[in-house]
């Protein structure tokens, strides 16, 4: 579905991604794990069109992505950004409706709103509340729901567990699997390596802008290099 070949991204002089190549197959949950500064967010932002690559190519369903960020969503890629970036002074409902900005089918939008409230029941009580007044976990739910309202083929999740309580993290990962089960391909960037690898079908480990190892989630969980570097397991 998505194939990235030899992708290079720079912030001025700083070379953030050094020739990354990776594949995301349709219907999978793919995790990109790595420490701070590994380039996970850079990768996500580049895929969403917010950064432009210095080299390499990104093919989505066989064709290159448009250069303008606002056209990416139309292709079926939606980013749920790090720190959520909700519209703080819009209500929860209005935030979700913004997710459906490009859609014209009123009935479908109304049905999807209901689906989101079923997916995250607590949101139903918060419909009229300003998004800025929600707790971190609730905001993350709204951010994911806002992304899903656009009916993406590929959902990019950047650090969905950031700043959440452990129980909430578990719930989030469970929900991501549910979303995937409904047919949405998920590419997930996570610092929380253990849980992300445990849940993902495929995974890539990034280190300072390069792919260190890749394989299935379970394989990487067992990989001694990964265990030592990211999971804090001593040998």
């Amino acid at each position: 579905m998505l194939s990235i070949r030899n992708l290079n991204v720079k912030y001025g002089q700083i070379h953030a991604l050094h020739g990354i190549s990776l594949e995301v197959e349709t219907g999978r949950v793919v995790a990109v794990v790595g420490a701070n500064g590994a380039g996970k967010t850079t990768l996500m932002m580049t895929l969403a069109g917010l950064l432009s690559p210095a080299g390499g190519e990104i093919l989505f369903e066989g064709t290159a992505l448009p250069k303008e960020a606002y056209k990416i969503l139309g292709r079926g890629i939606c980013l749920v950004p790090e720190r959520r970036r909700l519209y703080a002074n819009l209500t929860v409902r209005e935030n979700l409706l913004m997710g459906a900005y490009l859609r014209k089918d009123k009935a479908g939008i109304a049905a999807d709103l209901e689906r989101m409230y079923d997916l995250f029941p607590i949101m139903r009580e918060r419909i009229k509340q300003y998004a800025g007044t929600l707790s971190g976990g609730e905001q993350q739910m709204v951010a994911i729901a806002r992304g899903l309202m656009s009916r993406p083929k590929l959902l990019l999740l950047d650090e969905p567990s950031l700043g959440l309580a452990p129980l909430m993290v578990q719930f989030m990962f469970k929900t991501i699997r549910e979303i995937n089960a409904e047919g949405v391909t998920v590419l997930l960037a996570e610092q929380n390596a253990f849980q992300a690898l445990d849940m993902a079908d495929d995974a890539f480990v990034l280190e300072t802008g390069r792919v260190l190892v890749s394989g299935s989630g379970k394989e990487l969980l067992e990989n001694p290099l990964v265990r030592k570097a990211y999971l804090g397991v001593k040998h």
Partner: peptide, 14 residues
């Protein structure tokens, strides 16, 4: 309003 609140997030929503 989305542009006012967070123009990057607005752009991401198309």
């Amino acid at each position: 309003i989305a542009i006012r609140e967070d123009f990057v997030a607005a752009e991401m929503m198309g």
